[in-house]
Design a protein around this nucleic acid. Structure first.
Lengths: 261, 261
DNA sequence: CGCAAAATTTCATACAATAAAATTTAATAA
DNA sequence: TTATTAAATTTTATTGTATGAAATTTTGCG
């Protein structure tokens, strides 16, 4: 059973302040598209320069941060970490052949997404015969509020969490200012429906269906989707693939449940 | 100028103990090929269970660690980090077209490696017309003591550092117990030579030449290499490519030096 | 060369990380 | 099912260290 960290415990227990702050620095560095200087990073993280400097130095010691002159950026140590994840994560490993099979059967692009905070991450993708005409690289962060694979990940959340998702999505410029929970709800699948559909949402000219990957704990953190350019698949074409997709998700979940640690 | 963290300062200054320990947990998780339980991780990191648990919880909060039942593993948050690195790191970006050009000109496989602690990491690779017959994935950790691209990274180190490299390489099973600095030295390029050559070293039936990527600070942390199956390239064939390789390394360094932050 | 801004170090203080021990939970055997 | 043991987790007193203000040094720029 996949375990979610309980917010209550995380906050009440001794807080590991410096570690949390270090990870926030690490995350902040990922938001820049150019190396940044100490004071800028400190400001963006809301901490003092000395503290930020000390954190950067430790991260740098381990290759998680690189420095050139006075500018800092993400370091090469993240590469082997990602490699290990892809090669040993039970879900990613189990998903590969299943996505492969899906792509072959349907001719569409099959993807596995993982919920990460208020975004989702493309973990695996097998491009189908009908190419999408653009490339979405493994590891890319995408919104939860847009696209079938995102929407199915938030479909089961309560009002409070949905509010947070909306706030975060606006903050990250995925949605325009003023975007509301009500608007998001309109986009989500109706209650009782176990799949999500999108058309021209995250990328124009692209249609997509997605289902959640069930987990023993009940928390939905992964989804798989089928995507196609609109000119080669109609809405009904895609909806016709939902049973196949649903079946793949179940098979993936079963495969995982039977994995012993 | 790329800056190396000074060991003296890192140790004398306030040590950021919990952060260092957290990164050690994070690194330890990468050494397992299966999810591990708390007590095992704690033991392998040489720290108490409560401390290890607190660290794992924080890392998990940020998706850097995943938990299923009682077993922990690297989490999906490393994927976007690696993506950001590959898309925004000045060196990785600059190297891509240069490796591409090298592979096209020579028909060989061109690679960029980065020194990470006592190992090296494959950062970028463009496979040449003469395939190597095996796949080495981006982000894989490899030894410094074996292979042309590794050897050129340690060629300039002093005796003390070389000793550490040897010790680490034995510990990680890249070299047999009893491997000595003297043996490593025999393998390294002779003084004054700016390239390394290997034959049947890291992979059998494979020959390789490598040069260092110069940096303004003088510290060598990156190398580029050309690799070929032995049946399609002789030693002399590869050595004939050294000037081209050398030229590429210089071009890469110049490109970087001219990048403004 | 001299000024302004940024980086870095120093340092006193408050707070948080730590591991031992206690408690709870889980796993296994009887 | 219950007894037994091990593992996970929480509690707690103590120790240590993370923290930002201020001082100092370095860097960048006119």
């Amino acid at each position: 059973m996949t375990v979610e960290p309980k917010a209550s415990e995380a906050r009440s227990a001794s807080s590991m302040r410096s570690l949390s702050r270090a990870i926030e620095v690490f995350e902040q560095l990922q938001r820049y598209d150019h190396p940044q200087r100490l004071n800028q990073i400190a400001k963006d993280c809301g901490m003092s320069s000395p503290t930020t400097l000390r954190i950067l130095r430790v991260l740098q010691e381990y290759g998680l941060v690189s420095q050139t002159d006075k500018s800092y950026r993400i370091g090469p140590a993240v590469l082997p970490a990602a490699r290990v994840f892809l090669e040993s994560d039970p879900l990613a490993r189990a998903a590969r052949p299943i996505l492969q099979h899906l792509a072959e059967q349907t001719g569409l692009t099959a993807s596995l997404y993982s919920k990460l905070g208020f975004e989702r991450v493309l973990v695996e993708r097998v491009v189908g015969a009908a190419s999408l005409g653009y490339d979405l690289p493994q590891g890319r962060r995408l919104p939860l509020t847009v696209g079938a694979a995102g929407k199915i990940l938030v479909a089961a959340l309560d009002a409070d969490q949905l509010e947070q998702v909306v706030t975060a999505s606006v903050e990250r410029k995925y949605e325009p200012a003023g975007f509301t929970v009500a608007e998001l709800r309109r986009r989500l699948p109706p209650p009782g429906e176990d799949f999500a559909y999108s058309e021209d949402e995250r990328a124009t000219g692209v249609v997509s269906v997605a289902v959640a990957v069930p987990s023993r704990s009940g928390t939905i953190t992964e989804s798989i989707s089928l995507t196609s350019p609109m000119e080669s698949s109609s809405r009904d074409d895609l909806l016709a693939q939902v049973p196949e997709l649903r079946h793949s998700a179940r098979r993936l979940a079963d495969l995982l449940a039977s994995t012993m640690y």
